[in-house]
Simulated scan of single mutants.
Amino acid sequence: MGLTIGIDVGGTKIAAGVVDTDGTIGARTQRDTPADSVDATAAAIVEAAAELIADHEVEAVGIGAAGFVSSDRSTVLFAPNLAWRDEPLGARVAAQLNIPVVVENDANAAAWGEFAFGAARHAEHMVCITVGTGIGGGVVIDGELLRGAHGVAAELGHMRVVPGGHRCGCGARGCWEQYASGRALVREGRAQAESGSLAAAQMLSVCGITDPTELTGPMITEAAAAGDPCATELLEDLGRWLGEGLASIATLFDPTTIVIGGGVSAAKELLMKSAQVAFEKHLPAKANRPHPTFGIAELGNDAGLIGAADLARKPAPVPAPSR
């Protein structure tokens, strides 16, 4: 199969691109996401794809969407930030474009992008963690994307790490993403500043603000890069939580490569050093098992778009017969 279109549907924007078999994006377009309307969101997806199809011979479309996607890669069962509930998005878009359409979980699509063309392109077993506002995850085993029996596997950010801990948007308490995400980084930074900590006050000064509520994750990362002690400590704590969780992930999936992506990965060594130390400390039977390599994602914000486009070239898996 030749050219395909990848579409990454986010809470605020819809990014679309024509992608070749080498993972290169040849043309792009973008639309705002009307997140509160199912019909308007589908229309925006169709409009973006149609614009690209008009100028390119495209054979299929892949859509990456945040949420639970059915195992036949057609229906969005649930989306936390969009109005989709049991939405037959694939069939709906395909009917209007008259072209095959598949739908993937956005974190799965990003993981596949890094597996096929990015930081894990030489691996057969990999885990990709996207550390942004929350934590997304994707797992590839023996060169195949792990989707699970119902299409909703690898929701790694919702692994419980602290019983009775912080309430998560999923409704549970103590999920990993409440401690190892951009949201957690900002929460802790603001809490320190509001406590009257002199070190945190100095961090706010480095960030050029006085109000703790204005503090953002990128501000903390930039302050740490400039050598601010409080910001550095906050990133080290985040890395510790990340590394502890990854030790459990490695125990479950035995990957050869773990790729870290998402906005928080911009901190690179400021984050990764403490993550790897915590990983080595908490990995079970660490002296008697092979250790995975760590890598920073290479495709940036294009990983989901590229991955969705490449997955559109692959037929939907056939569900196993029920017993």
Rank of each mutant, 00 (worst) to 15 (best):
T4Y: 11
A15Q: 06
A16Y: 02
T21W: 13
G23T: 15
G23I: 12
I25N: 08
G26R: 15
Q30N: 15
P34Y: 00
A35K: 06
A35V: 05
S37R: 01
S37P: 00
I53C: 09
E57L: 07
E57V: 08
G62A: 10
A66K: 05
V69Q: 06
S70C: 11
L82I: 04
R85Y: 07
V93K: 03
P100H: 03
P100Q: 00
V101I: 05
N108C: 04
A116M: 11
V127L: 07
G136M: 01
H150Q: 09
G151N: 01
A153L: 06
A154G: 05
E155I: 06
R160A: 01
V162L: 12
P163C: 07
G165W: 15
A172T: 11
R173W: 09
W176C: 02
A180K: 03
S181F: 13
R183V: 02
A184D: 10
V186I: 13
G189D: 03
A191V: 00
S195C: 03
S197H: 08
A201E: 12
A201T: 13
S205P: 13
G208A: 15
A224E: 01
A226V: 01
T232W: 01
E233H: 13
L234K: 01
R240V: 15
A247E: 11
A250E: 08
L252M: 10
L252I: 14
V259L: 14
S265E: 08
A266E: 15
A266Q: 15
A267F: 06
L271Q: 11
A275R: 04
Q276G: 04
F279W: 12
K281L: 08
H282V: 07
R289K: 08
R289E: 07
I296P: 01
D302M: 09
D310M: 03
P319I: 05
P321Y: 12
